[in-house]
Design a protein around this nucleic acid. Structure first.
Length: 269
DNA sequence: AGTCACCTGATT
DNA sequence: AATCAGGTGACT
């Protein structure tokens, strides 16, 4: 589910459904959702507050509240955040929820229970997220940004792309997809890739993410729970053994940084 | 720079 | 029973 495009889609849906809503109560089915903070910390920051704005920074969802607090929600691997008409309809995988004054509920649904909700004074958010790198869909993300970062790193370029302190929001799927479309072998040390190819990679990162945001926003906004997070075809991700749509060679899967990287040995060199 | 722990559920 | 999963931070 959630890399930058899916998180962005959740933010858009939240704005549509819950901006202005008032929080009546916070409940944590699993206290660790707030760790190292406590459910009481979250309740204190949110009781009686209204949702003022919903922002995204990398894969973080930021909910600014009246009263001066901001919630930071991280979906990690399996999290989702959505509004339902009545808290009694929540799924068993609801790890925490906010009861809204209008009777609805904002559900933090997370089957794997790795996601987090934290509360901070709004101005502190800058420091909390200060380690994050550039937003890849912002104007500030230039080819030179990538070229400079690559020059300083000898790790495999796929791991560079997934480093949140360099680019905020790229994850395993879209890093692999961008590298495929740029024709770059994910194993290449970043500092051994020529500037011209990094320019191409920059363009493909932006293109892949924009496409995915569009797709995810439509998928998440349609009524009911999303089940197919990716409704547009991925070129290499999760396609080990299939034939590449461009050159026909078998797509490979290799471990990188403890996770799977998919790539086409014909197209990516 | 690489490995592991955090969790649950789906798949092999 | 074993392996894998789109993330991240804390270890070695």
């Amino acid at each position: 589910m959630p890399e930058l495009p899916e998180v962005e889609a959740v933010c858009r849906r939240l704005r549509k459904q819950a901006l202005g809503a008032e929080i009546a109560a916070f409940q944590a089915q699993r206290p660790s959702v707030a760790s190292p903070q406590t459910p009481d910390d979250i309740a204190r920051a949110t009781d009686g507050a209204r949702l003022r704005a919903v922002r995204r920074r990398g894969k973080n969802i930021l909910i600014d509240l009246t009263g001066g607090s901001t919630l930071r929600v991280h979906l990690r691997m399996t999290g989702d955040l959505y509004v339902i008409p009545d808290v009694r309809f929540r799924p068993v995988t609801a790890r925490a929820w906010f009861e809204l004054s209008d009777g609805r509920a904002l559900i933090f649904d997370d089957s794997r229970a790795l996601g987090k909700i934290h509360a901070y004074p709004t101005p502190e958010i800058e420091n909390v997220l200060g380690h994050l790198g550039i937003e890849p869909l912002s104007k500030a993300f230039r080819p030179e940004t990538l070229i400079d970062a690559a020059r300083k790193s000898h790790k495999p370029v796929k791991l560079l792309l997934m480093d949140q302190t360099i680019i905020a929001g790229l994850g395993n799927i879209y890093a692999a997809e961008a590298l495929f479309h740029a024709g770059i072998d994910p194993r290449l040390p970043a500092n051994r890739i020529r500037a011209a190819r990094l320019r191409r990679l920059h363009a493909e990162i932006v293109r892949v993410l924009r496409t995915a945001v569009q797709s995810a926003s439509i998928a998440y906004m349609s009524p009911g729970r999303f089940s197919e997070a990716e409704s547009f075809p991925l070129a290499v991700y999760d396609r080990e053994g299939e034939n590449c749509g461009i050159c026909g060679r078998r797509i490979r899967r290799i471990p990188q940084g403890g996770r799977s990287t998919y790539f086409c040995p014909g197209c990516q060199r």
